[in-house]
Simulated scan of single mutants.
Amino acid sequence: MSHLESSTIHIQDPKSEPRGKFGDMKAVKVMGSGGGAVNRGLAVFDFILRLAALAAALGAAIAMGTSDQTLNFFTQFFQFHARYDDLPAFSFFVAANAVASAYLVLSLPFSIVSIVRPQASGVRMLLIIFDTIAVALISAGAGAAAAIVYLAHKGNNKINWGAICQQFGSFCERVSGAVVASFIAAFLFIVLVLISAASLRRN
């Protein structure tokens, strides 16, 4: 009588294997760390852009606020004088860029928090709200000043507005540079808003 040999294949239940669980958890953790690295990179870029925007806005406010030129004709008692506060648009420009600079200084600690905790959506939401307000403020100031600078360079014969930059060359160069710096700051604010929006979407 022949004996039939039988072989048994043991199949282990995947649910009873703890290594499978840890392996899945590890895979998920690796994927999560990759997303966190991207958010952290965006947060670092955000911090750098805030420093650049601070330099541009503060430089614009200082350049406009210190713009002053005096022309002497015949005697020292007969003078033509040009200052930024002679025009309300320039005064508003200085105030807008000063407020934006102060906000950027206050926002730096929040930007650092976003680097340390890239998944913190509350901080990013706060920044995107105030960044949008800053875009509107600094764009309004830059736009108002740009209109005056254009008239100073080109003039307007219909309203008898002469091109004063022919006489006040140093004054016009200074205020023109301030307006350009302010528009750069406004552009950087727009990029900051886009970065915050991208980070919120990834979260």
Rank of each mutant, 00 (worst) to 15 (best):
M31D: 15
R50V: 02
T75A: 09
F74D: 12
V113T: 13
F77E: 15
G32K: 15
T70Q: 14
A60Q: 00
D24H: 15
D24V: 12
F90E: 03
D131L: 03
K15W: 08
F93L: 04
G32C: 04
Q12A: 11
L51E: 11
D86W: 00
L108Y: 04
F90C: 01
L49V: 09
F90A: 01
M31E: 15
F73E: 04
R40Q: 15
M25T: 07
T70I: 14
A98T: 15
S101F: 04
V94N: 04
L87C: 06
R19L: 12
H10P: 04
S7L: 14
S16T: 12
P14S: 11
L51Q: 14
I48M: 12
P109Q: 09
F80K: 08
A56Y: 01
F80D: 02
D131G: 00
V116G: 05
D131Q: 08
G35A: 13
P88A: 06
L127I: 01
V28I: 11
F74P: 00
V123N: 05
R83Q: 11
A98C: 07
A89Q: 15
D68K: 07
G23T: 12
S67H: 01
A52C: 09
S111D: 04
F22K: 15
S91H: 02
L42Y: 02
F92C: 03
G35W: 10
R124H: 05
M25E: 13
P18E: 12
L51Y: 09
N97F: 03
L4W: 08
R117Y: 05
T75L: 12
L42S: 06
G122M: 07
E5R: 13
F45V: 11
V44H: 06
I115C: 02
P14K: 14
A89P: 01
Y103I: 01
L71I: 10
L87F: 10
L42M: 14
P118L: 03
F90K: 00
A37D: 13
Q76I: 06
D13T: 07
L49Y: 07
F110V: 10
F22S: 10
A53S: 15
F110I: 11
R124C: 06
R83W: 02
R124V: 15
I62R: 13
R50D: 01
A52K: 10
D13L: 09
S111N: 02
F77T: 12
P118Y: 00
A52I: 06
T70L: 14
F78E: 03
H81D: 11
D46C: 07
F47C: 07
S67T: 05
F80A: 13
G41A: 07
L58P: 00
G65N: 03
D46Y: 09
L126F: 12
L106W: 08
K15T: 07
Y103W: 11
V123H: 02
V123M: 08
F78H: 09
R50L: 04
V116Y: 08
S111G: 14
A102H: 06
G59V: 03
V116H: 05
A52R: 12
F74A: 10
Q76M: 09
